[in-house]
Computed example of a mutant assay.
Amino acid sequence: MFQNSRTMVSALVPKIHFRKLALGFVIFFIIAFPILALNLKTINVQVDGKTISLTTVFNTVGQALTYSNLEINSEDLVIPARDKKITKGMTVLVTRSIPVRLAVDEQTLSARTTAKTVGKAIEDLSNRYGLQIKDVDEVNLPRSEALKSQMSIEVRRSVPIVLQADGKTIDTYVAPRTVAEVLKKFNIILGAKDKVSLALNHILAANEQVKVVRVAERLETIKSEIPYQTVTQPGDYPVGLPDKVISRGSNGLQEQTMRLTLEDGKEVDRQILGQKIIVAPTNELISRGAQTTVSRGGETINFQRAYLMRATAYCIPGGITKTGAPVQWGVVAVDPNVIPLGSRVYVDGYGSARALDTGGLIQGNRIDLYMDSEAAASSWGVRYVLVYIQ
């Protein structure tokens, strides 16, 4: 009998334990329900074009959304902010973010953004991830294009370059690419003979300069004079006297076909392709003195050259010449720039003499002859004579 009593007690223990738990739950619910009821708040969530009524016991917007079944992403835009305390009847606006792929610096980033355009998405992700993408960097899509889910955006970093062409200088930015690609990008079409400062397959680096020189060729027919030549023949008169024109010369006329090469509008070369003479030139014929000897009073005078000079006479007894020699018959004053001092000369109408003196008025083709008397000097006067330098 004792054994049966123990079995009955053991069967009663679980039942008593369950009843205690159930009673505790009922008591907790009775106590907690009023508290929970007092903390319940209902907000209106506008998302995906719908307004959804959401009842929550949480205090902040972020907590309410996190523990809801709305599947809100951390990148979604929430207004008011997620840390804003909830008030009854509050309206919360949720803008869904969409997934995109951004490739930059040879890396691809998968992220979400609420931006509406490609440009705004780049700005958002650049700021968020510290990518420092600039407005001048190149993008594979127009920045104004509407953003779509799973869109792939490719960014190429740009570097500053200088482009000179057609009289313009363009300071711009381009992603590293060949010179040929840059010219195509700016619609610069090269002619067959145009020159470029860098090879077309050269990949541009920062601050490099590309200069395009336009090369053009054109044909021109040009008429020009053919200068006449001067032909001399020996004349039967002393060396040194002025040439005598026997017949006047005249220029000819020729026509030339030229190929002109121009770089940026400036002529840099010309080549004669052909020419023809329209009027031949006529040479000028002159006679040039060839005599180096003359006969005077049965005597032959040899000389180097002759001058036609204006001759005057003077008489200063006892005078001293420029060279220190005393004045006397046969002493003449000359311009040393024409006849060197000390030269032997022969003066027509006077005879042999030595150039030993100078004078303030004796310049150029002038000569002053010493006479033995004032009367002889006066009688000589002024005359033009041939002076032979021996």
Score class of each variant (00 low, 15 high):
residue 277 I to S: 11
residue 356 L to V: 07
residue 280 A to G: 04
residue 328 Q to W: 12
residue 283 N to K: 14
residue 267 E to N: 10
residue 332 V to W: 00
residue 297 G to A: 15
residue 286 I to K: 13
residue 322 K to L: 12
residue 331 V to P: 04
residue 313 A to W: 00
residue 262 L to V: 00
residue 333 A to P: 03
residue 315 C to S: 15
residue 260 L to S: 01
residue 352 S to V: 12
residue 320 I to K: 13
residue 332 V to P: 03
residue 276 K to L: 00
residue 314 Y to M: 03
residue 296 R to G: 12
residue 333 A to F: 01
residue 280 A to N: 13
residue 326 P to Q: 12
residue 340 P to I: 00
residue 264 D to M: 02
residue 290 A to H: 09
residue 313 A to S: 08
residue 291 Q to T: 09
residue 280 A to D: 06
residue 353 A to W: 02
residue 302 N to Q: 14
residue 328 Q to R: 15
residue 300 T to C: 05
residue 288 R to V: 13
residue 267 E to L: 04
residue 311 A to R: 01
residue 279 V to Y: 09
residue 260 L to N: 01
residue 284 E to R: 12
residue 320 I to R: 11
residue 275 Q to T: 06
residue 353 A to Y: 04
residue 289 G to A: 04
residue 277 I to G: 01
residue 285 L to H: 12
residue 317 P to I: 14
residue 321 T to H: 06
residue 276 K to D: 08
residue 283 N to H: 14
residue 294 V to F: 07
residue 296 R to I: 13
residue 279 V to S: 07
residue 336 P to D: 03
residue 307 Y to M: 02
residue 285 L to Y: 05
residue 328 Q to K: 14
residue 313 A to V: 01
residue 298 G to D: 06
residue 350 Y to I: 13
residue 332 V to G: 01
residue 261 T to L: 12
residue 337 N to S: 11
residue 334 V to W: 00
residue 328 Q to P: 02
